[in-house]
């Protein structure tokens, strides 16, 4: 298993929208490497005769009828987790109102 670089940690932090300090990056670099190494142990298992799977339940074709049912959440319930609302909408900071090519 290739060792992680500082750039890898910065990239992963970026994807998770985390701002890490230099100290934090240096702290997490060996920890993340260790986790990868540990998971990498799985690579030692011989899987030649095993079919790949993406789940453990063995279920297939679990479908729902195409029916509308009342929701357990109304508008007030939907908005109850935030104070940032406006006329029934969730309100967030402006997105894409500034061009990124400036």
């Amino acid at each position: 298993m290739a060792k992680l670089s500082k750039a890898d940690v910065e990239h992963v932090a970026g994807l998770a929208k985390l701002d890490l300090t230099e100290t934090e990056i240096n702290k997490f670099l060996p920890q993340l490497s260790q986790i990868l190494e540990h998971v990498g142990e799985l690579g030692k298992v011989d899987t030649t005769d095993l079919a790949p799977t993406s789940q453990t339940t063995g279920l297939t074709n679990v479908f729902r009828e195409d029916e509308v049912k009342p929701s357990s959440i109304d508008l007030d319930g939907a908005l109850s987790g935030t104070d940032n609302t406006f006329n029934g909408y969730f309100k967030v900071e402006a997105i894409l109102t500034e061009r990124t090519d400036k």
Binding site: F86, N87, G88, Y89, F90, K91, V92, E93, A94, I95, L96, T97
Partner: peptide, 10 residues
């Protein structure tokens, strides 16, 4: 809204 640009989510 109130002079501030923002985005509303539905």
């Amino acid at each position: 809204i109130d002079g501030k640009k923002c985005s509303l989510v539905d």
